[in-house]
């Protein structure tokens, strides 16, 4: 399976994603500089974490207007798989590929720690190897992860089962205390209506090897591989 990883000035999880895909999963990974217009024929595009353009103006705002992102938009419109992690999620909301916005954390602090996630939708290319009843533990590292949208959009996301991941406690209870950043309805990740674009604040690519103490992130990538094996190129 071929992954293309976009690189913006200020991206800093691009190599984490590359390492995970190349060396842990043994799949193809290519970097795509934001000024490029050729995505190199990927099966899945990764928008990595980091601080694209120094988070100037708003997180993800500048990146969303880059030439490579124009291509990512048409790739997604044609049904291509796009996974936005952390800053990548912010870029996806800024382009309008996903609804809502990510605001400053309620606490104003940059939060870097593991969280527990409940997978609410296991029928997606990104989640078919996950289990609703089995929580995953994934690290978050962000200052702007507080998911916000208008009430109508929130209703729509919930009704259409597009809230994919929710912050919960270690027992799976979705509580206010388990909400690290103030996100509406404890939202940690959402998908578009077609289910081929996923944005999530937690970093599955940082939880892929037992040497780092956690392999729960593997399941997201294993889902993508399973989907690919089932359907071939997207």
């Amino acid at each position: 399976m071929r992954f293309s990883i976009l690189v913006f000035p200020g991206s800093n999880c691009d190599y984490d994603a590359y390492h995970s895909i190349r060396h842990v999963l043994g799949q193809d990974a290519e970097f795509i500089w934001h000024e490029e217009t050729d995505l190199k024929n990927p099966d899945c595009v990764i928008l990595p974490g980091g601080f694209s353009y120094g988070d100037y103006l708003r997180c993800g705002a500048m990146a969303s207007f880059s030439p490579a992102m124009e291509r990512v938009k048409s790739f997604a419109n044609d049904g291509g798989l796009v996974l936005g992690i952390c800053n990548g999620f912010q870029v996806l909301t800024e382009t309008g590929m996903l609804p809502g916005a990510l605001l400053r954390n309620r606490s104003l602090s940059f939060i870097c720690r593991d969280v527990f996630l409940k997978t609410e939708n296991t029928h997606l290319p990104f989640t078919n190897r996950l289990d609703k009843d089995r929580l995953i533990r994934i690290p978050i590292a962000h200052a702007e992860g507080n998911y916000f949208c208008d009430p109508e959009t929130l209703d729509e996301l919930e009704r259409e089962n597009r809230v994919v991941f929710r912050y919960c406690d270690r027992k799976g209870n979705v509580t206010e205390e388990a909400n690290p950043n103030g996100s509406l309805n404890n939202i940690a990740g959402i998908t578009n209506r077609e289910g081929n674009v996923l944005g999530m604040m937690p970093h599955p690519e940082r939880a892929m090897e037992s040497i780092v103490g956690n392999t729960d992130g593997m399941r997201v990538f294993q889902s993508l591989l399973a989907q690919f094996q089932k359907t071939g190129a997207y």
Binding site: L57, E94, P99, G100, A101, L103, F148, D150
Partner: peptide
């Protein structure tokens, strides 16, 4: 288009 994010 750019300077403001009209969602928020």
């Amino acid at each position: 288009k750019f300077l403001a994010n009209t969602v928020i």
